[in-house]
Simulated scan of single mutants.
Amino acid sequence: MKTYGLIGFPLSHSFSKKYFTEKFLNDGIADHQYELYSIENVKSLPDLLSSNESICGLNVTIPHKVSVLPFLNEIEEAAEKIGAVNCICVKRFQGETYLKGFNTDAYGFEKSLTPLLQPQHTKALVFGDGGAAKAVKYVLKKLKIEFQVVVRSVTENAILYSEVTPEILASHKLLINTTPLGMSPNIDTFPEIDFTHIADQHLAYDLVYNPLETTFLLKAAARGAVTKNGLEMLHQQAEKAWAIWNR
């Protein structure tokens, strides 16, 4: 039996187990399973791997995308530049466990965002500055899209929500939520910007996929913006992870 899984805390919002379980069933992949490993402290990772020797690969979600780095033997170049890992390939040699980290969030985000980009999407507002935001910023730099990070507490190289002026909203036509705001069960939360300054030239992208229509997306759509949730990004990054695990 080959086991794959997801580490994070909490994991009540995860679609990964359902996605991979259905994939194994639909593709006729026998002797494979996908489990959820709710670990509050990433220091539990070595014990998890030693007590589950069938684990061949792991996805990583909040809050471990950055804190997992010191536990890895190797990190791919893109993940190293991003500074966050959401996929681990687990290899075992003569009783030793070797962990290599990857970032498939960047791949999934780029694949799902690029078809929606229009000539006016030259500047972006990125809400949040956690592990997911690191992948988003990496892709925006790659696509040569200028960006401004927006956060709730004073941070270097970022502005506060209260500092997002009508002029900034007018000039930044790409809006990206990388925070858990709006995620079930807290579906009434959202990045607190003035939505009256959003129009049909804007593209609002939310990495949240549960619910499929967050309050952020609903408010943006009400102003005529094109909207996109994080479900396709999830699918794209999951397939990339599967390819990595089976190299």
Rank of each mutant, 00 (worst) to 15 (best):
Y19W: 15
L234H: 10
Q94F: 15
V85H: 14
D31C: 14
E213H: 13
V85Q: 14
L212K: 15
W242D: 02
V126A: 00
Q118W: 12
E53M: 11
L49R: 08
L45R: 09
N229S: 13
I168G: 08
L58V: 07
I145M: 03
E156P: 12
L175C: 03
L207Q: 02
I176W: 05
Y34E: 11
T104H: 11
E80S: 14
P180I: 02
G224A: 08
M1E: 06
T189G: 02
G224T: 06
R247Y: 11
L231P: 13
S54T: 09
Q237N: 13
P46V: 11
F216S: 09
I88V: 08
S38I: 13
V226N: 06
Y34D: 09
Q236C: 15
D206P: 10
F195A: 01
V208C: 05
K219R: 13
A158M: 05
V60R: 05
E110C: 12
E22P: 05
G131V: 07
H235P: 10
K100V: 08
S67I: 00
P185L: 00
T61N: 03
K137T: 04
Q94Y: 14
L234I: 11
T61G: 01
T196H: 04
T215K: 15
V66N: 06
P63F: 04
M183V: 00
S51Q: 11
C87F: 12
A241Q: 13
K240N: 02
K240M: 08
Y107Q: 10
M183K: 04
D129A: 13
K111R: 15
A243R: 15
A221R: 15
Y107R: 11
L174A: 06
N41W: 06
L231H: 15
Q236M: 14
T3L: 02
V164Q: 02
D31E: 14
T196R: 12
N26I: 13
L72P: 05
A106F: 08
L181R: 00
E110T: 09
C87M: 10
I88E: 05
D27A: 14
A220F: 09
V126R: 00
A199N: 11
F15M: 01
V66T: 02
T122V: 09
L212S: 13
N186T: 05
L69H: 04
P63N: 08
Y107S: 04
K141C: 09
L116M: 10
I198L: 04
K2T: 10
I176F: 01
Y205D: 03
E77P: 15
T21R: 14
E192R: 04
Y161S: 02
A106Q: 06
G8C: 00
S184D: 09
K43Q: 14
P115T: 12
T196Q: 03
G5T: 06
I244D: 02
L218V: 08
G101W: 07
C56E: 14
V150R: 05
K173S: 04
L58F: 09
L69S: 01
K228F: 10
S153P: 01
E192V: 04
A124F: 09
N73Q: 07
N52K: 04
R223W: 08
P166H: 04
A132R: 05
T3R: 07
V136E: 07
N26K: 15
Y161F: 00
